[in-house]
């Protein structure tokens, strides 16, 4: 067993390049270790690496924990942060871990899709930025090379004025999402709809976006059509947590409700 605590990013990257397993908050990796699914013998511990814990309106370091994001993050990401696990998990888990694990149910990921965030990947030979839809490839599959670390989430400097998050789970707290959704809307009506747990990766409901973006004050029928389009566009599966049919339905309901919240805030 070998564990190193890098003093700076360079040391961390060297360790990753050397094949060491990166460990941030531990809330994903240690579950697999405890269940005997992984047995990393060489670990680079990132918990105390300040170099990746920077925080600004356009850049959230990978090591920033949910606890901070729920207080200081952009509105919809903060709402998502409050649904991540439990207080204990939010104290340990990081946004970089969420992005690196790339679970279809990752609570923070629909926000990244909704605002077209980029993922900063860094290796010894430098950094590159991948847009979210280039980065997320499949279920727990990403475009990260094994010598790279997720070092930051990069956001545009003009995030949409209206942004709302919601998540369906069977319990009132500490629950994996059945469906989660972010809707954003700008003054000019430009709307994005992003969803999680309804496809192998976070996804956007582009047809629904296109339809609603041109509507300034959508009618009841338009809202219903918007929800129907979202339900149609998602690609969920049936598993032990829910059914394809329910996820389709709930995706539409959530998207519509979040849109209505954006519209109400617009009116207010």
């Amino acid at each position: 067993m070998e564990v190193i605590h890098p003093r700076n990013l360079e040391e961390a990257l060297a360790a990753v390049a050397d094949g060491m397993t990166p460990l941030a908050g531990g809330t994903d990796l240690m579950v697999e270790v405890n269940y005997g699914q992984k047995r990393p013998e060489r670990v680079v511990a990132l918990r105390r690496l300040a170099d990746i814990a920077d925080f600004s309106p356009t850049r959230i370091g990978a090591g920033v924990r949910w606890r901070r994001i729920e207080k200081e993050g952009p509105r919809a990401l903060a709402q998502a942060a409050r649904t991540v696990g439990s207080p204990q998990i939010r104290n340990a888990g990081t946004i970089g871990g969420n992005v690196a694990t790339a679970s279809p149910a990752g609570d923070g990921l629909p926000f990244l899709a909704a605002v077209d965030a980029s993922i900063e990947l860094t290796s010894g030979s430098g950094s590159r930025l991948l847009r979210w839809d280039e980065y997320f490839v499949g279920v727990k599959q990403t475009a990260r090379r094994s010598d790279e670390l997720v070092t930051a989430i990069v956001l545009a400097d003009d995030l949409p004025e209206r942004q709302e998050f919601a998540k369906v789970g069977v319990r009132n707290a500490m629950v994996i999402s059945t469906v989660c959704c972010v809707v954003t809307r700008r003054e000019d009506g430009a709307t994005t709809v992003a969803l999680g747990s309804v496809a192998p990766t976070p996804m956007r409901a582009r047809r629904a976006e296109e339809m609603i973006s041109s509507e300034r004050s959508p009618s009841e029928a338009t809202l219903a059509e918007f929800a129907r389009l979202v339900s149609e566009e998602v690609a969920p599966i049936t598993d032990h947590r829910s059914t394809e049919e329910y996820r389709r339905h709930a995706a539409g309901v959530l998207a519509r409700r979040l849109l209505e919240r954006c519209l109400r805030r617009e009116a207010a």
Binding site: G26, M30, V43, A45, N91, A92
Partner: peptide, 15 residues
């Protein structure tokens, strides 16, 4: 910080 000790790699508690 309040955390679950089952999710802390023991070696990461160093120091």
């Amino acid at each position: 910080e309040l955390v679950c000790s089952c999710l802390v790699l023991a070696a990461d508690a160093e120091g």
